[in-house]
């Protein structure tokens, strides 16, 4: 029982990462009906942005690890990724807006390969050690918790889950309560009708890329808190897993992406804990196949309306 709980706690951290990345896939799918295969690599860019800005942000906040310094690293990485996402959309996808969807899909794969290879030549192909931006340590659980006091919960885990929750609440606010969020939802349903309301669809699409990429950037930093080694290909696997999470939750559904991410994270932890790390990836991808066969609209995805 305790061990099971421990696996869930471990899985929640990784699940938060998948959730944040999956949101970007699902938002872009919502407005453009295409899978941005370069999204996982934006997450990698976030981690490297953190690697480069961390030394001087940390110095700015007193030298050692600190929450303020970590927050600054997080926000800067999110900003860098938002800019990268908007630039990718502008340079690579926008010119293909009125071409067959397959063209832009293939372009996305090209952008992904480009980022991975450019990453290896600019950052170096070998893994880099991410600096300690917060002092990560296991919490001392009070003895009054009885057997639960044996659980290991780290500051890093709490931070990852907490920051993810804050970002999810923030995203929900943007999507449901702001003018751009409303336009995003209208555009996702019917781009032509949205433009008849005066929406500049290009601006909303760029905003969507920026928002999704910022979340991927945050995931890049949060992951580096949990495992300190980063490399230019780290986005490949994480991107694929998050894509599975988005499909599991129902592509196009924001709560679905968050739920799918957490479920995939938990599933991985349980497979690693009870079966074998060898089966982690095969089982996650088997989930993709099963969901596509059994319920392609995912757990929370509505039935796709035919567009006229």
């Amino acid at each position: 029982m305790i061990e099971f709980l421990q696996q869930l706690i471990n899985g929640l951290g990784q699940g938060s990462i998948y959730a944040l990345i999956a949101l970007g896939y699902t938002m872009v799918y919502g407005v453009l009906r295409f899978i941005n295969f370069a999204h996982g690599d934006v997450y990698m860019l976030g981690a490297f942005a953190g690697l480069y800005v961390a030394p001087w942000t940390l110095r700015l906040f007193g030298g050692g690890p600190s929450f303020a310094g970590a927050a600054a690293v997080l926000l800067l990485a999110m900003a860098v990724c938002a800019a990268a996402g908007v630039a990718i959309e502008w340079l690579c996808y926008r010119p293909l807006r009125h071409r067959p969807r397959l063209n832009v899909l293939i372009t996305a794969i090209g952008v992904s390969l480009f980022l991975e290879n450019a990453g290896q030549s600019v950052f170096g192909a070998d893994p880099k050690s991410f600096p300690e931006i917060i002092a990560d340590r296991a919490l001392d659980l009070p003895a009054s918790w009885g057997p639960f006091a044996m659980l290991t919960i780290t500051v890093g885990q709490l931070l990852v889950v907490g920051v993810t929750l804050v970002l999810l609440v923030g995203l929900r606010h943007v999507v449901r309560r702001t003018r751009l969020g409303l336009a995003m939802r209208a555009l996702a349903f019917n781009p032509g009708a949205a433009s008849l309301m005066g929406v500049n669809n290009g601006v909303v699409i760029a905003f969507t890329f920026g928002l999704g990429s910022a979340l991927a950037g945050a995931a890049g930093i949060l992951t580096s808190i949990q495992q300190s080694s980063i490399d230019p290909l780290m986005g490949v696997n994480a991107g694929l897993k998050a894509f599975v999470a988005a499909v599991l939750g129902g592509i196009g559904s924001l709560p679905g992406a968050a739920l799918g991410g957490v479920l995939i994270g938990l599933l991985e932890a349980l497979v690693v804990g009870y079966i074998s790390p060898t089966y982690r990836d095969p089982i996650v991808f088997a989930v993709l196949i099963v969901i596509l066969l059994v319920k392609p609209t995912g757990l929370l995805g509505g039935t796709e309306r035919e567009k006229v």
């Binding site: 336009a183 939802r185 209208a186 032509g192 009708a193 309301m197 005066g198």
Partner: peptide, 26 residues
């Protein structure tokens, strides 16, 4: 110049009030 298109094209994923808000987008 406003256009009420054929087939209405209301936003079925939004509430009635949100549809009205979209009309006042500008």
């Amino acid at each position: 110049l406003a256009h009420v298109p054929e087939g209405r094209m209301i936003f079925a994923n939004l509430s009635v009030d949100e549809n009205l808000a979209m009309g006042a987008y500008l």
